[in-house]
Structure formats: structure tokens, C-alpha cells
Amino acid sequence: MPTVYKNNAKTVLKSEVLARLLRGLSCGQSRSPARTVFIRDVSYNLNTLMIKYLTFGVSISFISWIVGMLLNFILMKTGYYHKISNLNFIENKKQNKNIGIEYFKWIVKNSFFKFFNPKIKVDNKKTDLTEIRKEMTIAEISHLIAFIFVTVIALYMSILHNYLFGLTIMIVNVLMNLYPSLLQQENKRRIDKIIKRQRKTVANKI
């Protein structure tokens, strides 16, 4: 199996593999052994790189959750936290559906991800919705901080290595950080409507 080496931030195959390909092409052999070997080697190296990139992306995203929670804990002690606790990037329900938030919500409800936020659960009508909203905000801001953290790393890896590396990290980052943040924003909008109705009902009774 030919080895690979890095040259000017690009991964290239060794010259003998390319030479075999050229020999096969020069003879007009569209299905020559050289071409077959070349395609096999490229496919193998691409698969290996993608596994490496995806593994790194998932790992750094898990680490970013810890970073997000720690920085969120610090932000909670500042007056600035109240300003960022009412973010709404995509308010339109149809747009949220178009980008797949409904599918993502289903995945969260039916996978191990549902165990990450056990406090965000409405058990009955006596559940304190204000406290639930607070937990949603913590999750939202933590994921948003984590998203920014991983984005910086993705940009760095794009420059240091290649754009495919950075793009792969960002795809994982969107699924593991941006979408959870958008989901919590949608959940908060629903909670806010319920809280508003409850307060209106109490005011009418008075």
C-alpha cells in the first residue's frame, strides 16, 4: 500500500503510483491495472482521512460541551447573561422545519441524547415552567459557546491542514452544537407562550 506525505498542506500520493497511472493512460488502457491500483489507493486514503476527520470532529465536539458549560457558568454571574438568554436566530416555525429541526428533535427524544438534560422535562401541570426555561437557556447558551469554540478550531485546521478537514469538523459541529441550541430556542418559545397564558389566566382571576 503506497504511503502518503504532506506537501504544502496537501496530501499527495507517492510518485510511483502516479507513474503507473500515466503509463496505463498513455497506452489507452481505460481499465488498466495502473488505473485500478490508483483508484483503489485514492479510495483507501480518502476513507482513512474521512474516518480520522470525523473522529476528531466528534471528539472535539464532546470536549466543547465541557468548555461550553464552564464558560456558561462564568457568564451566569454577569449582567450580560440576561441579554443573551432571549436569543432567537430562527423564529419562523416553517424555516425551522425546513432545516430539519423536527427530525433532530425526534432523534434527541429517541436516542441516548435525551439523558443529557434530565432536568428539561415537563412531568405534570405542577412543573415549574420558569425553572424549565432556565435549564433550557443553560443548555442553549452552553451549546452556542461550544459551537463558537469548535468553529475556531475548524478554521484553524482548515488553514493548518486542508479545507476538507475543517468542513468535516463543521458538519459535526452543526449537528452536535448548533442544532441543539436552535432546538432549545424553539422549546423556549413554546414555554414562553404557555407561561404567558398562565399569567394572563391568573390576572383575569384577580
Rank of each mutant, 00 (worst) to 15 (best):
S158Q: 08
S26C: 06
A9Q: 15
W106N: 04
G100C: 09
N96R: 15
I132K: 04
F116M: 13
F62M: 13
N117G: 04
M76I: 12
W65R: 05
N7C: 08
R23V: 11
L155G: 15
I51D: 05
A19D: 06
T201L: 04
F62W: 13
R40Y: 07
I101S: 07
S15W: 13
G100F: 07
F89M: 13
L87V: 05
I63K: 01
K193G: 00
I99H: 08
G57F: 11
E16C: 00
E102T: 01
Y81D: 08
L49E: 03
A154F: 11
S59W: 11
L46V: 10
L22A: 09
D123S: 13
P180S: 12
Q95G: 03
N7W: 05
Y156N: 01
I169D: 05
L182M: 12
W65P: 00
I90M: 06
T130L: 11
N7K: 15
V174E: 04
K196S: 07
I206W: 06
R35M: 10
L18M: 09
K93I: 08
N124P: 06
A19E: 12
G68W: 10
V122N: 02
M50F: 15
N204V: 01
I60D: 10
M1A: 13
M1N: 04
F89T: 07
T48Y: 14
N88P: 01
G79P: 02
F73M: 13
V150N: 09
R31I: 07
W106E: 14
C27G: 03
A146L: 09
I169Q: 05
I148V: 14
L25M: 08
G68N: 11
N88L: 14
F147P: 01
V172G: 05
F112T: 13
T127D: 05
Y103S: 04
N173A: 13
V37E: 13
R133G: 06
N45C: 06
L178A: 10
N204F: 01
L144Q: 00
T151G: 14
